[in-house]
Amino acid sequence: MNKIFYIAKEEIKILFREKIFFTLLGVFVVMSLISSFLGFMATNTTTSIYNSSVKFLIQKGINNIPPNPMLSFGALTDFRNIIIYMFLIGALLAVVIGHRSFIRERKSGVLPILFSRPISSNTLFFGKALGIGITIFSIILSAFLIGILSSLLLPYRHLLFDDILRLIIFYIFSFFYLLFFGFVGLLFAIKTKSESLALFIPICIWVGISFVLPEIISGQNPTALLNPIAMGQVQVQNSVFFSLMQTYLQPFSIGGQYTSFALQLINNTSQTSLINVILNNLSNITTLFISIIGTSTLCIYSINKNNIGKDEIYE
């Protein structure tokens, strides 16, 4: 057990020394910081446009005006952009963390030395996994704290207890989503002989999960899925093709499942209770856990099978 903790500790120490990690982390933190501000700005401007529209309609003699649609959204709606940044930058950051954690050892050639010590492949994996997990957790925690802090700074948009609870559930789910990508990055850092390929393949997988599968299932264009409002409006198309795709590919669409659950938590327009949101998404949560267990099993298998200590890696 001590060995696992030692490997994890070293992992975190080395990662936090890397400039490139800090660059990516910086982009993520900045985006987390401005995401609630962007949401607040958009909500505020839309409300002002609504008020101007009401004046315009009254001047035209129309009095039967629908209520402001923005009022049906809670303060938590201002956080909806964070779903996208978690989905984009967070996932890329996680891939990089997983990738760096193994490539570094392979490049420096310390793996044969490491395996000359009484350390098993399983210990090595669990140490790395713990290191990746703690790093991702600290990133998620800082994003959460930034979110809470920024909500306190924004006028009239303070979060209620239920909102904070929803936000906590969202960040916990996001942690596991990023952990999955961290393990994907780790898996290809173990398996692939080329350093660039070890980074490109997880990015291909990420593009597939984030854009391709949701498009095939819903018929939505790739970038339409980056708009939290458009994502919430995705409807199952009235077609045999999309019904088939929905049936067979939905279980693999981890990205689509993540955004769907996240939107139900944060962009809760249907006023569904938190417990019901969780119960409705049990299958999504299960799929994510199965994916994490699957990738970690593959990582352990690859460490054992590839005898990576003897391999060389090239650019």
Binding site: L38, S53, P66, I84, L88, N227, I229, G232
Partner: peptide, 24 residues
């Protein structure tokens, strides 16, 4: 990221179906 920010800041994108359509 940049195109996404631009898109989500669009006032007419804040309401499903568009704000103006919603209020007629």
């Amino acid at each position: 990221v940049i195109p996404q920010i631009g898109d989500t800041l669009d006032p007419d994108n804040q309401v499903p179906g568009g704000l103006f359509n919603k209020i007629g």
